[in-house]
């Protein structure tokens, strides 16, 4: 099952993923129109400074089994096996905050959403952009990422890649990880 793979070592902290995420989860899915909407669109991915010029895109890992699903008193968080996601149903969410208490990655946001107009706020997090998926497009954050810090692919492939790199370190001094492109290196020099 494809998922969003995060490579923090490539992230430059440009926040374009946040902008794309917020726009994708607006009613119009258009940046300019979204600014005037009654529900201010909210990004479901956060980017934190990570020290040493690194930044860290933090989003829902779609755990299976998911701690948030186990604690949800409203039955609003369910596993979607067909999409490989752990989804929140805004129509059922009662904004109790239990999921934030359980999530070991700190990815939940609470805000109003047009999907549940009668509520003051509901729990929001990454949903792997179902509307885009239906059109065969990758999630908005992946499309927006210019440095390959967010890619959409099979986690097994990413794991195998990392495992091969680690395995080599048993026999030799660790080779450098995949080279960071010159553009990223230069950008960091600016900072």
């Amino acid at each position: 099952m494809k998922t969003v793979i995060v490579r923090p070592e490539r992230c430059v902290g440009c926040l374009q993923c946040r902008l794309a995420c917020a726009v994708e989860h607006s009613q119009s899915k258009d940046l300019v129109a979204a600014l005037g909407e009654a529900w201010r669109p909210v990004a479901r991915i956060a980017v934190y400074p990570g020290g040493r010029h690194l930044s860290f895109p933090n989003k829902c890992r779609h755990c299976d089994p998911a701690p948030c699903e186990a604690v949800c008193i409203a039955g609003a968080i369910r596993r979607n096996p067909a999409r490989g996601t752990t989804d929140i149903d805004p129509a059922r969410c009662i904004n109790c905050g239990m999921c934030a208490m359980a999530c070991p990655f700190g990815v939940l946001t609470f805000a109003p959403t047009p999907q549940a107009p009668e509520r003051r706020a509901v729990a929001l997090k990454c949903d792997h952009c179902p509307d885009r998926q239906a059109q065969g497009r990758p999630p908005a954050c992946v499309e927006a990422c210019k440095v390959g810090a967010l890619t959409y692919g099979e986690p097994a492939h990413a794991l195998a890649e990392k495992a091969r790199w680690l395995a080599r370190t048993f026999f030799a001094a660790p080779p450098p990880p995949e080279p960071v492109p010159e553009t990223i290196r230069l950008w960091r020099h600016l900072g």
Binding site: P49, F56, P177, V180
Partner: peptide, 16 residues
């Protein structure tokens, strides 16, 4: 600075 960035973003050995 106690947040996911400082907790989990650690440079790989040898990375720039």
């Amino acid at each position: 600075h106690f947040h996911p960035g400082r907790l989990w973003a650690r440079p790989l050995p040898g990375a720039a």
